[in-house]
C-alpha cells in the first residue's frame, strides 16, 4: 500500500466516516462518548436553530455576490495585464502581491482602512460619496468583506491570464479581417475559449465560498468581542457576518456540540455537492472545449 493511500484513508476517509457517525449522535467530545440520537441533530438544525438558517442565508449571499464578482474582476484584471508591452512582470507582480498577505492581516488592515475618519472614508468624502460605517453597519459589513476578498484575487487573475494568453491569435486575426468589433471578439472568441477556466473558477469559488471563515471571524471578533469569551456578539454587527462555518465552529469548538457540528458539516457537504452538480449540469450549455465543442 502506497503512503498516499495510507494518508488518504487515515486523514480523509476515516475522519469523514467518523464525523458522519457522530452526526447521528449527541457527543461533546468527552470521555462519556457519543450517544446515538438518530436524526435528532438534523431535525434540530431545520426546526430549532434559527442561526442555522441565518448563517446559511449570509453564506449564500456571500457566494452569490463574491464568486461572480471575482470572476468578472479576475478576467478584467487579467485582460488589462495582457496589454502592457513594457513592465509586464512588474504589473503582474503588483496585481498578485495582495494574495501573499495573510487573510488575518488583510482583515485587520481593512478594519483600520474602513473606520470612520479612516483613509477610505476621507476619499469617499472628498468625492461627496456616502460614507458608510462598514463593519459597524449590518448593511455594509458583507460588502466590506467582499472588498477584502476581491483585493486578494491575484491567484484567480493568474489563472485567467494564462487562459487569455492561450487563446490562439489567429482567431482574432480572422475576426479582424471579418470586421468584428471588440465586443464581438470578446463575446464570440475570448469568452468561449476561456469558458473552461471560468467553469473551473466558479466550481472552486463555490466550494471555498461556502467555507468562508477567516476574514469574517476576524472582523466579527473585533466588532463583537473575542469569540469564545462570555458576551461576544455572534457575527457582529447584528449577525450579518455570521457565516455557516463560523456557527459550525462555535457549535463544535466553543459549545462542544460535536455531534451537532458534525451534522452541520455534512449538511454543508450536501449543499456544496448539490451546487456543484447543478453547475456541472449547466456547463453543457456554456462551456466550450477546444476540439470538442460544447459538452
Amino acid at each position: 500500500m502506497s503512503p498516499w493511500i495510507v494518508g488518504f484513508l487515515v486523514l480523509y476517509v476515516y475522519p469523514m466516516l467518523a464525523s458522519l457517525y457522530y452526526s447521528f449522535t449527541k457527543y461533546d467530545g468527552g470521555k462519556a462518548g457519543p450517544t446515538w440520537v438518530g436524526l435528532f441533530n438534523y431535525r434540530f438544525m431545520f426546526a430549532h436553530d434559527p442561526l442555522f438558517w441565518a448563517s446559511l442565508r449570509n453564506t449564500i449571499w456571500m457566494v452569490a455576490v463574491s464568486v461572480p464578482l471575482s470572476i468578472v474582476l479576475g478576467v478584467g484584471s487579467a485582460y488589462v495585464l495582457t496589454k502592457p508591452r513594457r513592465g509586464r512582470a512588474l504589473y503582474r507582480t503588483a496585481f498578485f502581491l495582495p494574495t501573499m498577505v495573510p487573510a488575518v492581516a488583510a482583515s485587520v488592515a481593512f478594519l483600520f482602512l474602513l473606520n470612520a475618519g479612516g483613509p477610505i472614508d476621507h476619499i469617499l468624502g472628498f468625492f461627496h460619496l456616502p460614507q458608510p460605517l462598514w463593519f459597524l453597519d449590518a448593511q455594509w459589513s458583507k460588502p466590506g468583506l467582499v472588498m477584502i476578498g476581491l483585493w486578494g484575487i491575484g491567484s484567480t487573475m493568474i489563472i485567467f491570464l494564462a487562459a487569455l494568453l492561450d487563446v490562439p491569435t489567429h482567431l482574432y486575426e480572422a475576426a479582424d479581417i471579418e470586421g468584428a468589433s471588440a465586443w464581438q471578439k470578446l463575446r464570440y472568441i475570448t469568452l468561449p475559449m476561456i469558458s473552461p477556466v471560468i467553469f473551473f473558477t466558479a466550481v472552486i469559488g463555490i466550494i471555498y465560498g461556502f467555507q468562508y471563515f477567516t476574514e469574517a471571524y476576524v472582523v466579527g471578533a473585533s466588532i463583537g468581542g473575542a469569540a469564545g469569551s462570555s458576551g461576544s456578539g455572534l457575527g457582529a454587527p447584528q449577525g450579518s457576518t455570521l457565516f455557516y462555518t463560523i456557527w459550525l465552529y462555535q457549535q463544535g469548538f466553543e459549545a462542544f456540540h460535536l455531534g451537532y457540528a458534525s451534522a452541520m458539516a455534512w449538511m454543508l457537504f450536501a449543499i456544496v455537492l448539490a451546487c456543484t452538480l447543478v453547475l456541472i449540469k449547466s456547463s453543457n450549455r456554456w462551456v466550450f472545449y477546444q476540439g470538442g465543442g460544447f459538452r
Binding site: G29, L248, L258, A261, S262, A265, L268
Partner: peptide, 11 residues
C-alpha cells in the same frame, strides 16, 4: 478523527 474531519470538511 472526528475533530480532524470537522476541520477538514467545514473549516
Amino acid at each position: 478523527a472526528a475533530l480532524v474531519g470537522l476541520v477538514a470538511t467545514a473549516c
